[in-house]
Every structure is written in C-alpha cells, then in structure tokens.
Computed example of a mutant assay.
Amino acid sequence: MSHRRPKSPNMQNYRPQLTSVLSFGHRLSGVAQSLGALGLAAWLMAGASGQDAFGSAQALLLSVPGRIALFLVTLALFYHLCNGVRHLVWDSGRGFELRAIYAGGWTVVGTSLILTLALWTWGLA
C-alpha cells in the first residue's frame, strides 16, 4: 500500500522573488563566465596552432550559435559585475531596505542589458 506524503505547505505557496532569481542568476553567470574562459583559452590555442585551426575557431564563433554564445557570455560578465557591485554596497551595511533591495536588483538587470547592448553595438559599428 503506497502512502502519499504530504507536501510542505511552503512549497505549495512558494513564488520566486526578485532576490532569489537574482541570486540564482549570479551563480549561473559565474558558471557561464567559466565556460566562456574555457572558450577563450580554446580560441587562443587555435590561434597559436596555425591559420587552419584559427580559421575554424573563427568560423565557429562567427556562426549564429557562436554569436549567441558570445552575447550570453558578455551578458553574464556584465551581470556578474553589476551584481558584485551591489553586493559590495551591501557589505558596507547599506541598501537593505526593501525598496533599496528591489531598486538595486532592477538596476543590476537594466544596467547589465544596457552595457551588453552598448558593447555589442559599438563592436559591430
């Protein structure tokens, strides 16, 4: 006979909040940066290996999936940077009021997007 265990009442009513989503995003952006660093190392190694290897690496990076990956790594870099600055403000003991927490969170998101788009616009010009 199988008994169904009751679910925690907190799990049934849980709704992700901005702070929890940003915290998860910070961890995810760190992983993305690590993968981007591996990609950068591979690109540099291809460059040191000769024209054929470098040409193949460039073709991969300039493909649509490659450009999407580069864009996402750029976004991860700026998000992680902006959120790190936000944490430095918190380390100073400021910004813990609820309004400041949400304003800072949305500022991190907006600034990350603006910086990413600005860099890509400047780079494509």
Rank of each mutant, 00 (worst) to 15 (best):
A100W: 13
W120H: 08
C82H: 04
T111M: 10
L72P: 00
L72M: 04
L75S: 03
A118Y: 13
L113R: 00
G95P: 07
G93T: 13
I114L: 06
S112H: 00
E97Q: 11
T111L: 04
L113I: 01
A69R: 10
G95V: 03
G95K: 09
V73Q: 06
L113G: 06
G66Y: 08
W90Y: 15
V109G: 04
A103C: 10
V85M: 05
L72N: 06
L61H: 10
V108Y: 02
V73H: 03
R94P: 10
E97P: 02
A103N: 13
T111N: 00
S92Y: 15
V108N: 04
L75T: 07
Y102C: 06
V108H: 01
L77D: 07
L77A: 11
T116V: 02
N83L: 12
L113D: 00
C82M: 12
R67G: 07
R67H: 08
P65L: 02
T116D: 00
G84K: 11
S63M: 04
R99D: 15
G84F: 03
F96R: 11
G66R: 08
V89A: 11
R86N: 11
S92R: 15
L72G: 04
V108E: 00
H87C: 11
Y79F: 09
I114R: 02
V85N: 06
G104F: 01
N83A: 13
T74L: 11
W106R: 10
F96A: 12
R67I: 09
